[in-house]
Amino acid sequence: MYRDIAAKLINGIQDGQFEIKLPTEAQLMEMYHASRNTIRKAIDLVYQQGLLRRVQGSGYFITSIQLQHKTVVNLSARGLFSDNMHPRQLVSKVLTFDTIKSDYDLSKQMGVPQDSELYRVIRLRYWHEQLYCLEKAYYLKSVVPYLSTEAVNTSIWDFLNEAYGLGVANSDDYLSLTNLSEEDASLMQLGHGDTYLALDSCNYYKNNGLLDFSHTVFVYPDLALYFHTTNLANN
């Protein structure tokens, strides 16, 4: 339950519902009909994403990075809340949605046997009517036996959570600069060989089972990257 509340708090921060600070623990307990312990665990998860700063005796304030930058990719939000690393209200244009068997290269990237059955989703994503990214994602059918067209057009992660109770427990992420292949350039109507930021991710659910692999190329102008770290020795 606390993970659901944490996701709602993150959405509230991103949507401007909480602009300066979070409500008090007592107010959040009333809002979400939850115990103090549940609320505290939810707040801790949001804090780990770098969206809050703790002020002794005053509560939790929204971090300035969240307020000042509207084109932030919050890499700290990888894992527990995969959708929350992107800006809210992205619009998807699905280019490919089918089932394939993994070839040698894809099997190696995912660490799965060759010819594993996968859902393949290739989509362009737009923010404020401008191209935000190209996303190629591959979901193991052994873990996700059914993926709906509606989910692919809206939020795959919401569907996985509601249909299968699947969430991302942790992820391996690799950031790099990539030169657009001829295929990717054609899909985005950009220049072949142009350089953009790419994120390759393997997402894992509980017990470290692989859920999916994705390759995302970000092309939105003035995009900022944010990553929050916590010094555990000082906690």
Rank of each mutant, 00 (worst) to 15 (best):
residue 232 L to R: 06
residue 196 Y to M: 02
residue 70 K to N: 09
residue 64 S to M: 14
residue 129 E to G: 02
residue 99 T to K: 10
residue 26 A to F: 10
residue 172 D to M: 13
residue 85 M to L: 11
residue 188 M to T: 01
residue 102 S to K: 01
residue 33 H to R: 12
residue 74 N to V: 06
residue 173 D to H: 07
residue 133 C to L: 14
residue 80 L to S: 09
residue 71 T to E: 12
residue 180 L to T: 04
residue 228 H to W: 13
residue 219 V to M: 04
residue 138 Y to W: 11
residue 218 F to Y: 11
residue 68 Q to I: 12
residue 53 R to C: 12
residue 61 F to L: 15
residue 5 I to K: 01
residue 21 K to Y: 04
residue 99 T to V: 06
residue 43 I to T: 01
residue 215 H to C: 06
residue 28 L to T: 00
residue 166 L to G: 07
residue 55 V to K: 12
residue 58 S to T: 04
residue 215 H to P: 08
residue 47 Y to P: 10
residue 166 L to I: 14
residue 67 L to S: 13
residue 41 K to E: 07
residue 195 T to I: 08
residue 44 D to F: 11
residue 52 L to P: 09
residue 90 L to Y: 00
residue 127 W to H: 11
residue 229 T to G: 12
residue 28 L to C: 00
residue 116 S to M: 04
residue 45 L to G: 09
residue 108 K to P: 00
residue 89 Q to Y: 15
residue 108 K to C: 05
residue 109 Q to T: 10
residue 147 L to R: 08
residue 12 G to H: 06
residue 213 F to A: 06
residue 169 A to C: 05
residue 52 L to Y: 03
residue 111 G to A: 03
residue 120 R to E: 08
residue 93 K to W: 12
residue 88 R to I: 09
residue 61 F to S: 05
residue 126 Y to A: 14
residue 20 I to P: 00
residue 77 A to D: 06
residue 42 A to Y: 10
residue 42 A to T: 06
residue 128 H to M: 15
residue 126 Y to E: 14
residue 93 K to Y: 15
residue 232 L to A: 10
residue 93 K to F: 14
residue 185 A to G: 15
residue 233 A to T: 09
residue 105 D to W: 01
residue 144 V to D: 10
residue 1 M to W: 02
residue 166 L to Q: 05
residue 70 K to F: 09
residue 53 R to T: 12
residue 29 M to E: 14
residue 49 Q to W: 05
residue 234 N to H: 13
residue 51 L to R: 08
residue 147 L to F: 00
residue 163 A to C: 02
residue 133 C to P: 06
residue 170 N to M: 14
residue 45 L to P: 15
residue 120 R to A: 01
residue 155 S to D: 03
residue 165 G to S: 03
residue 100 I to M: 02
residue 145 P to L: 00
residue 211 L to N: 06
residue 84 N to K: 12
residue 92 S to F: 11
residue 210 L to W: 06
residue 65 I to D: 13
residue 181 S to K: 12
residue 209 G to F: 07
residue 30 E to A: 09
residue 30 E to L: 08
residue 213 F to D: 02
residue 77 A to I: 10
residue 156 I to P: 05
residue 200 D to P: 02
residue 171 S to I: 13
residue 228 H to G: 10
residue 187 L to Q: 09
residue 74 N to H: 07
residue 97 F to N: 02
residue 116 S to D: 05
residue 197 L to E: 08
residue 154 T to Q: 12
residue 131 L to A: 03
residue 222 D to K: 12
residue 221 P to N: 05
residue 61 F to P: 03
residue 7 A to F: 15
residue 127 W to C: 08
residue 132 Y to W: 13
residue 134 L to R: 05
residue 97 F to S: 09
residue 44 D to K: 13
residue 29 M to R: 08
residue 156 I to C: 07
residue 66 Q to G: 08
residue 25 E to V: 15
residue 44 D to A: 11
residue 74 N to C: 04
residue 112 V to H: 06
residue 128 H to F: 10
residue 101 K to W: 03
residue 182 E to I: 09
residue 205 Y to H: 13
residue 136 K to W: 13
residue 124 L to P: 09
residue 61 F to N: 01
